[in-house]
Design a protein around this nucleic acid. Sequence first.
DNA 1: TTTT
DNA 2: TTTT
Lengths: 166, 166, 166, 166
Amino acid sequence: MLNRVVLVGRLTRDPELRYTPNGVAVANFTLAVNRAFSNQQGERDADFINCVIWRKQAENVANYLKKGSLAGVDGRIQTRSYDNNEGKRVFITEVVAESVQFLEPRGSSNSNQGQGFGGGSPGFSGNDFGQQNQNQNQNRPSGGFNDDPFANDGKPIDISDDDLPF
Amino acid sequence: MLNRVVLVGRLTRDPELRYTPNGVAVANFTLAVNRAFSNQQGERDADFINCVIWRKQAENVANYLKKGSLAGVDGRIQTRSYDNNEGKRVFITEVVAESVQFLEPRGSSNSNQGQGFGGGSPGFSGNDFGQQNQNQNQNRPSGGFNDDPFANDGKPIDISDDDLPF
Amino acid sequence: MLNRVVLVGRLTRDPELRYTPNGVAVANFTLAVNRAFSNQQGERDADFINCVIWRKQAENVANYLKKGSLAGVDGRIQTRSYDNNEGKRVFITEVVAESVQFLEPRGSSNSNQGQGFGGGSPGFSGNDFGQQNQNQNQNRPSGGFNDDPFANDGKPIDISDDDLPF
Amino acid sequence: MLNRVVLVGRLTRDPELRYTPNGVAVANFTLAVNRAFSNQQGERDADFINCVIWRKQAENVANYLKKGSLAGVDGRIQTRSYDNNEGKRVFITEVVAESVQFLEPRGSSNSNQGQGFGGGSPGFSGNDFGQQNQNQNQNRPSGGFNDDPFANDGKPIDISDDDLPF
DNA sequence: TTTT
DNA sequence: TTTT
C-alpha cells in the first residue's frame, strides 16, 4: 500500500554505521526538520525524525554526512516493536530511507568536523575565498557535487535481514 | 523544511474524537499499511502508523471512518515527547494528517463494526451483516461517493493549541 | 535528486499495453484526480495525469485496471520531447509509476467492463447487489483483495530502453 | 483526491513574476531535477519540470531564487489546456507549488548568469566579488539563512483566479 | 527553451 | 538525546 515520505533536514549528530551478522551495512541517523510555522512562543520547532538506511547507501551516508549536514530523504514509514529490559513492549516509528540526497557541496558543512573547535556555526564561510576554492575543485578526486553518492544504485533494498541487531 | 507523508491503509480501530479545552476537535486513528514485500515467513507485514487530525476534518473522520475503512492520508511527520507516570521521557512519532481521503463507497466498508468477530478480514464480501448494513446506509443523511467530506476545506490547520490533552 | 509523486484517481480509459522491440512491456494510462476545492462555477475540476509503467507491472495494470478503476500511483515526474510530424518539438510531462495500488476489490469497478455501453459513470451501483456479488467473490481464482498484483516485485525498474516506440 | 509532488532541483532560469488583473502575484519557474540513474550514454539526464506559485510566495521566489538556485518544492500536479494561435488544443502539465524551500545559504548561489550583475551569481566560490557581495548582504533588511521566506504563511492558496494571464 |  |  502507498507509504511514502519525503524529508529535508539536518543531521542532529553523526550517522551510526553498523553491520548485521550477515555483513549487511545499516546506518541510523536523525533528521531535524524545521517546521514551517512558529509555536506560541514565536519559535520554530523542529521534528526529530529517526531514519534507517541499508547497504551501500548506508556506507555513503556514513562517509559523506555528519552532524549538521543538510540532506533529503525519500523513503517510507516503518513501525516495529521490541521488549525492553523491563519486559515492556516499546513501539518504534521510523523512516526507512530508500534514497538520500546530499544537499550541500562537499566540505562545506557547517558542523564542527571532528573534536574540538567549539560548536561554532561557520555557515558557508567555510571555503569561500577565491583561489582556494578553485583549488579545491581541482583537488576533487573525480566528480564534484554532481556525482551523487546517494543516488539509488538501482538495486532493490532488502530489509528482511533477520539478524538485525535491533 | 520539506516534510511530506502520503499513506493509504485501513483503520485498525474506530477513530477517537476529543476536544481540547478550547473546543478544538482532534481525532486519533491508526492506519495499517501493508508492506509491498513479504517477510521471511512469506507473510506481508504491515506498518501501524498513528495519525492525528484537527478541526472539521477530525469530525469528518470520526463520522465517516471506522475500523477497517480504507483511507488515504496526506500530511507530515511530527515528533513530540512527554514524561510518563514513571517520570520517564517518552518520544512519539506520528503523522499529522492535513487531508484524508475516504477510499470506499459509502456503506461498503469491510469492517465488523463493534464487538464480535475479532479483526477478521472480510475482504469485500461487503455487506457484512446484510440488513444491518442497509440500515446504516439509510441512516446516513445523503451524499454519494463523490462528495468527499475529507476534501481540504481550504482553511489552514492550526496545530498550536497549547491545551491539547496530550 | 528528489522527485516523488503520489496520486490517487480513476482511469479515464482502459490502459494501453505495448511492447518495445526488445520485448519490454510498457503500459500507458491517464488518471483523473479530482481537486480538493471547487472552481468558480462550484464544480470540482479534475487533473488528468498521464502515467507510464514498465515491465511486469505494466501487464498487471493492463490485466487488472480498466476505465473507471480507482488506483494509487507512486512514482516520479518525467519530461521528454520529440519532433512531431510538422517538425515541431513537443514537450511531454508525465508520471513514471514505480508502483500502482489497486484500490477496489476485484470485479467491483464502476466501469463498463467490456465493449460497448457508452461511457456511463455508474458509480458504485455496479455490482453491489447481494447474491450476484457473492458469486463474484466465489469466482475469484485465488486470493482476495489483499494479494495486490501491483505490489512492487522488488526488481529495479529499467527505463532506459532506447527502442521505446515513442 | 491524493495528488502530491515533492521535488528538489535547480532553476533553469530566473523566475518570471506576473500579476493577474486582480493583482494576484504568480511566478513561473522550471526546475531541472537530475535523475538518479544514467542513460545509455552514461550521462545523467534531467527532468525539466514547470512550476507555478501564487501570492506572497510568488514574490519570495522572484526575490530570492534565480537561475541555478537549488530549491525544494512541495505541491501538486495540475493539468490545463488552451487553444493556441493555430486553433489547436494544447495540454499543459505542471506543478503548483504550495511551498518552496530555498536550499542554499543566502548569496551562495552557484550560477553565473552570464554577463553583468543583475542578482550576482557568486557560485560557491563564495563572495565572488568581495565588496560587492557584502554590499548585497548589507542591503538586505535582516534575516539569515534561517528565516525562510518560503515557509508557508499559513494562508490557503487560491488558485481559482479566472483572470490568469494564461 | 534548460540547472549544477 | 537533538540540527541550522
